[in-house]
Design a protein around this nucleic acid. Structure first.
Lengths: 190, 190
DNA sequence: TCACAAGGCTAACGCTCGGTAGCCGAAACG
DNA sequence: CGTTTCGGCTACCGAGCGTTAGCCTTGTGA
């Protein structure tokens, strides 16, 4: 989420959690406002429409995710190292920002076509980081029956931490990330 | 979906696809009715409330899934064979009934507590089939840092076909199922 | 000091939604 | 052959929704 404790940032933080819990259409502006500590009309001083909240959340988290993914692979040659770094970063990120991340995964259908396409374009760039690593690996003898299928399997599996991760849970994000990375890498390497 | 071409069955089939595409709260009764070829009030001759549609879809698909899972492991001793059979059946099922299956995964929040609990109870029984296989495997030297985490990773990954599988696609359900099962089994075995 | 911008508030609008009331034709059944 | 059931329909209701209008207080800068 955008930094800061300003009202706009708090609105986005609350909206992300509500959209995560009940979906975009299952959440109303009055509920968000109440939890922010404000009345619904006041939110329109910060955002023009409810859909802008969803777009800000989904687009913002995808842009951050892409940037972190690009950092993770920068200068790394070996595809196994690249894939491991990507998975590790992906899982840790999805633990720490699980509300926004899951909203960006599941609630895009509520955006109009143009904005949905804008978010998806960023997501496609991000997924390409994974697919490139998998395809490079396939060229070096990994077991990859279908690069798209395997790539999607890995990212989906790694995203699933958004469902169950808890800050006060038994496992730290980096432990979970390591477990997933190990699992996936064993899965593709002969 | 329940068999038959009766109006009730057609309502459920359309509702499942609409809930899949736009979510429960993003779908209205008039839209479902229009696609069934009927007016909204007529649907109340078959179901008492909108939520009953969601429950019928989610509970129905989970009950069927559990039954098929139990068949898949019946009489199979080796945990690797059991896990492979479970994944194979899970993936094929999620291809063939992707609308209902994804609705049962993602839309439970829209059910009241009692019905949500009822669906979750069936889902828990189903997941236990997988966890038992993973734990048995862990007892035989598989690489399982955390049985719950690995089990959830496998089922989530295998469920993800609901997002992209197409009936007219390049890969048949059983091919996809085999790819996932291979990947997962390599992931857990030393 | 005073104008203005920022950011709260209350009141309320117009629309959409899930659901109900009640009518009607056709099929099933005694 | 009459009657009941089934499953459509139209008309409509009441609630809740996103959003707007317009007012007021507070802080800021000329």
């Amino acid at each position: 989420m955008a930094q800061g404790n300003g009202t706009a940032a708090r609105i986005l933080a609350v909206a992300a959690r509500k959209f995560y819990e009940r979906g975009y259409h299952g959440t109303n502006m009055r509920d968000i406002a109440a939890e922010v500590g404000v009345r619904a009309p006041s939110m329109y001083k910060h955002f023009d429409a409810k859909q802008d909240l969803l777009f800000a959340i989904a687009h913002g988290v995808m842009v951050d995710l892409l940037a972190r993914g690009q950092e993770a692979v920068a200068g790394v040659e070996d595809p196994a190292d690249r894939l491991r770094g990507l998975i590790h970063q992906h899982v840790a990120f999805h633990c720490e920002r699980r509300f926004e991340a899951k909203v960006a995964d599941d609630q895009l259908h509520a955006l109009d076509d143009a904005r949905q396409a804008e978010v998806i374009a960023v997501r496609d760039d991000y997924e390409r980081l994974f697919r490139d690593a998998v395809e490079d690996g396939a060229g070096r003898g990994w077991v990859v029956p279908d690069a798209a299928v395997i790539t999607f399997a890995i990212t989906t599996m790694a995203s699933s931490v958004t469902v169950w991760y808890r800050e006060d849970g038994r496992l730290a994000p980096s432990e979970i990330a390591a477990a997933y990375a190990d699992f996936a890498l064993r899965g593709v390497r002969a």
